[in-house]
């Protein structure tokens, strides 16, 4: 067949540098309309997000309204949740959510960052992809599977080994020791935080890894050329350059931990006893409280109170995100200051 590129009419009709006349410069008919339609579609898509958010919030506000007006501030300050006496205070749930999420953050950030550093800086090249892939595979495990594993495998180990160890070692230390008091039950806030940490680890690793890979080689080499060791280059140049992104990775992990329901519900103990300050207390998170109770909320006030918990969860998530963002902002803003102090 003689159909090579050289015989193609479009190529032979014009010498290579010939101008093809006005046709090349004229707008295709409908081109502008096409642009407008596409711009309109993207705008609609962009507007849909706040619209959905608003709809969710409105629905929550309307359904939660009876409980909120009846209990007022005590809905968030009271620790009594008694559907028989129709007393609904959500403080232990809020406390459980904040404590387990922060614990997850505290545990997952250093481990996740460490894993990301190993993958990007230390692992032999051929190990990097398998290690990263394995960690990110954690993200594919359904929450309920984590919950089952947590219930059958994690809680016994926590009860028999980890918690007695922490009580013996950290327990006597002033201040932080208060976090590890009381009997080790295995199903408590601490175990809830640990399982959340495992669940948000892939997020922290994946984002941190991307952030670390985005640090220009020149930053690292700039420090090495001053006579830094590899670790000094990482701690002196790479991590400071990447810190806003690493904080972002931690926030994304935190956001996931705040709303996580199934696995936590299975290991946290689901008991709304008094807030003790010890992590070894069984508790609830807001999400686990909703999951446990929305089914049995058979009267209007009880149902309204459960929806109220959901509304608060939404507000707490928003506030935590805001707080974290302010933190990042202040860190990056103050980055260059105080250096000559």
């Amino acid at each position: 067949m003689a159909t090579g590129p050289t015989t193609h009419p479009a190529m032979t009709a014009l010498p290579p540098n010939a101008r093809s006349g006005d046709a090349a410069l004229t707008r295709a008919p409908g081109g502008v309309d096409g642009d407008r339609a596409f711009a309109g579609a993207t705008l609609a898509a962009a507007l849909a997000v706040p619209a959905i958010l608003l709809a969710v919030f409105l629905l929550l506000a309307i359904d939660a309204e009876p409980a909120l007006t009846r209990f007022g501030a005590s809905f968030v300050t009271s620790s009594t949740w008694d559907n028989v006496k129709e007393q609904f205070g959500t403080l232990p749930y809020i406390y459980g959510t904040v404590v387990t999420s922060l614990l997850a953050l505290v545990l997952a950030t250093p481990v996740g960052l460490g894993a990301a550093l190993f993958i990007t800086e230390y692992a032999p090249r051929r190990l990097r992809t398998p290690v990263a892939f394995t960690i990110e595979l954690l993200a594919a495990i359904p929450s309920i599977v984590f919950g089952l594993w947590g219930f059958f495998a994690l809680t016994p180990v926590m009860r028999s080994t980890v918690e007695p160890f922490l009580k013996a070692t950290i327990g006597p230390v002033p201040v932080v020791g208060a976090l590890f008091q009381g009997p080790s039950l295995g199903k408590d806030l601490f175990t809830g935080g640990v399982i959340l940490a495992i669940m948000i680890l892939p997020t922290v690793v994946a984002i941190s890894r991307e952030v670390l890979l985005a640090v220009p080689t020149m930053q690292r080499e700039g420090m090495l050329a001053l006579g830094a060791t590899k670790w000094e280059a990482i701690s002196g140049a790479v991590l400071p350059y990447a810190r806003a992104g690493i904080a972002g990775a931690a926030i994304l992990g935190l956001a996931r931990a705040l709303g996580e329901t199934m696995a936590v519900t299975m290991v946290i103990g689901n008991s709304s006893r008094k807030i003790t300050g010890s992590l070894l207390t069984p508790g609830y998170t807001m999400a686990s409280a909703i999951a446990n109770q929305f089914n049995e909320a058979d009267n209007e006030l009880y149902f309204s109170a459960v929806v109220g918990v959901a509304a608060i969860l939404l507000v707490v998530s928003a506030l935590v995100n805001l707080f974290a963002r302010v933190l990042i902002w202040s860190i990056t803003r103050n980055a260059a200051q105080g250096a000559r102090a």
Partner: peptide
């Protein structure tokens, strides 16, 4: 180096 590479997090 070829491109200036000051550390942006430092003064």
């Amino acid at each position: 180096f070829q491109r200036p590479n000051p550390f942006p997090s430092m003064s």
